[in-house]
Each structure stands twice: as C-alpha cells, then as structure tokens.
Design a protein around this nucleic acid. Structure first.
Lengths: 220, 220
DNA sequence: TTACGGTTTTAGTCTTGACTAAAAATAAAA
DNA sequence: TTTTATTTTTAGTCAAGACTAAAACCGTAA
C-alpha cells in the first residue's frame, strides 16, 4: 500500500503530535500543525483511516496504528538522514536543512536510503540531535547527560536545560549556547569545576560549574 | 514564475524531442514521450504557452522559447548531477539511477544544486556520458574520439559507433561493449594495433584495430 | 435539561493533471 | 476539388487535495 506525499505528511504530523503514538490527536491540532483547515483534515483522516494507518472515530480524534507508526518512522528516518547529508557533506547550516529535507524525505527508493545511510556511516542522530530510527523503525533512546559530566575532547549537542528560568535562558542566548548548539569540551578546570567549551566549531565559551550542571547534552 | 513537476517534465520532453530547441515538436510525439494521451498534452501545451516557455500554435506543434530552453536545461542539469551522485557516491549501477534521478531532479533548492555540484567536484558528464549543463544552461560540446586514439590507462565511455551496420552492432552487443559502457584502455599492442579494454570495471575485452577505430568514446 | 460555544464534519467548489469520446482541423489521395 | 485518413483540440469526467460555508456534534454552564 502506497502513501502519497500529502498522506505521509499528515501521518508524520500525527505521529509527532501524539508523542510517538501515545496520545490521541484532535483534528484541530493536525490542522494547525500542517497549516491547513480542519475541513481538509477531516477528509484526509477518513482516507488514512481506510488505509488503516490511523484509527479514526469521528469527533473523537485519531490514534496512530502500529502500521502507521512504522510508516511515520520511515519518513522521519529519511528526513533525518537527508539532514545529516546536507550538513555533513554539503556544508549546510542547520537552520537551512529543514525545508529541503522536507522535500527529499518523499523520494521513493529503499535502495537510495540504504545506500545513503551507509555513505553517512550509519549516523544515530540528525544535526539537531534528534535520533534517527533504524530501517525497522526502532529508535535508540537518547541518553542525555549534564554538560558537567562530559569529558575533555568529547563532542555533543545541547538539547535541553534543567533550569529553564527566563534569566538562565537569556544568559544562554547571550553567550550563544542555544538549544541545538554543537559543542565540544576543550578543557575542565579541576579547581572550580568550570569548563571551556567550543560552540559550533568556532566560538570558545567559559562556563561555571553551576551553568554546566544545568545544561543537558547528547554525546556524539 | 514557478513550474510544477508535471510542467518541468513536459518541458524536458519537448527539449529532448526538439533536439535542443532546433526542431518543432508535435502533440503526438510529446504524448508518446511522456506516456500520456494527446488530449492531456494539448491542455498542458496551452498552459506552457501562457507561461511563455513554449510557442504554441494550435495544430502546428510547439517550439521551445529561450526561457523554456533555460528551464529545461536547469532540470537536465539537476537530473545529471544527481545521477553522478548516485553512481559515484552511493555505488549505484548506471542503469539503476534514472528513475530515482527523475524524482530528485524536481527538488527545489538552488543552494542544494550548487553545493552538490561542488561536492561532486564540478563533473562535466553524467554516468551515461551525457554532458551536464552549467548553471547558466551552457553545455560544453562533447569531444568524441575513436577508441583507437585513446592512450593506455585513459578512461571514458562509449557514446557512438561510426559503422552502425547490424552486423557490427550485433558483434558489440555480443562482446558487451554497448553504447554507454564505461571503458578503460588497459593495453595497446603495437604490432597489430589491437587493444585490451576494461568494460564497466569488470570485464576485459580484446578488440582489433578495425573494431577500435569504429567505436567513438568520450574521455573522462 | 436545555442552551451555548467551540470543534468537527458535511456539502459543495476549485485547481491540477489525467482520462474518453466526439468534434474540428490538417494533410494526403482520388 | 472533394473525400478520406490522421492528428489535434474541445468538452465533459474523475481523483487528489485544498478551500468556504453551513450543519452537526460534544461538553459545559445555567
């Protein structure tokens, strides 16, 4: 059973909105996500229901089925692999990749994706730090570690903060350590626990133990 | 002015059928090329005429305009660059690339194509030996040389034959030296002018001076 | 229990790009 | 010059995927 580009996009949106299939999703939410009108969504949900990739009860929102989840993860896998390709091989910046990957993810060729995965050396995370599902749709849980726990020379990416107070976020923004930033530990000072961090391969940043303990990263 | 995927495909077909814009093309020819019906073509020609990428006179076929030629060459450029990518980077065989490239060529991103070109090191020919237009649509004329003229260790691709008699073509087919085959000169025998040729990186072929003089190749 | 506001669905329309069947135009033959 | 064969166009449909407007439904508050 083949899905159109539009159907793939709906399914992906539903997957994301449902937190990987754990919650049910309303028509309006899908409409907002896809940037379309609720009426169009109703129509599409009926079709996706017939194809059995979602379970659709009129007026009660949708739940994604196992088959649907598998399909959505395939699309997400393709999207993220292309993002890695664009950043690692074609020197795109991360904020430039999304739209292009949004188009590339709909290319139909299992061989292409298999070979691309191989060419990229089987990456586990995309440039935003999101995990890349394997060909069976399995997603490795992403272990998050406090920046303070990372060793010298380790690379990674900032994915979240523990203390999300406005003041702290403002500080992060000011020094350029935004969510998504790729970082590398250059040095750790034994004396006060402070760290020297390379951000986006160009900017060096000094941060106190307290700051470094509040930032969560994934290692790569 | 933006062209849809379907419009790009029509334009490309017209470009090819018109021999690069030198001949006019009939509705039926386009229908055969696109594998669609003449009625559908009529409709599309009207639309392409309004967009001024072709000159359309009812019942008298179409001529591609300068603007249309430029657009067609952009699409051809994208197609051929992707083919190079698939063969050179993803280890596709040259007869596996066409369909996938047919999808990839419609991805809209000038930056993507510019970076891809750079990543592939500005290739001048695709895996079938067809020239890749530059970003302005200029196509470098492809210098063809008789196989017999090539030096040892030179690589290239068979693009045509001088003597296209059935007997000769049959012979070529039998030994596996088809049009499009990638070849490399392994050895030239001074004594009788015969050559040893590596075909598609796997098969070694011995051919007489007379045969080698009848085969035209491009060098790469 | 009924009324109301918000959500969702239905009904009907539009555009793109395909189709078939029929009409019209051109080209070739008598 | 008229007839005939071929090509091309028009007219009318269809499916996908969007839209608007109107109707139907749900949950909550009176």
């Amino acid at each position: 059973m083949v899905l159109t580009t539009a159907e793939e996009n709906y399914l992906k949106a539903i997957y994301h909105l449902s937190d990987g299939g754990t919650k049910s999703v309303s028509t309006n939410d899908v409409a907002a996500q896809i940037k379309t009108k609720a009426a169009s969504v109703s129509d599409m949900l009926r079709k996706l229901g017939e194809k059995e990739v979602i379970e659709y009860r009129k007026y009660y929102g949708v739940n994604i089925t196992e088959e649907g989840k598998k399909r959505a993860l395939q699309t997400i896998r393709k999207h993220r692999l292309w993002e890695v390709f664009l950043v690692d091989k074609l020197q795109f910046a991360w904020d430039e990749v999304h739209e292009v990957a949004e188009e590339l993810e709909h290319i139909q060729s299992p061989l292409l994706i298999q070979r691309l995965d191989e060419f990229l050396n089987y990456p586990k995370f995309d440039p935003h730090g999101d995990p890349i599902p394997d060909e069976f749709g399995d997603v490795r849980a992403r272990p998050r570690v406090a920046l303070i726990e990372m060793d010298i020379d380790q690379s990674g990416q900032i994915v979240a903060v523990k203390d999300s107070s406005a003041a702290f976020l403002k500080y992060l923004d000011k020094v350029g350590a935004y969510i998504g930033a790729r970082i590398k530990v250059l040095d750790k000072v034994e004396f006060d626990g402070s760290m020297e961090i390379l951000v986006d391969q160009k900017k060096t940043l000094f941060m106190s133990k307290d700051v470094a303990a509040n930032i969560l990263a994934i290692q790569s």
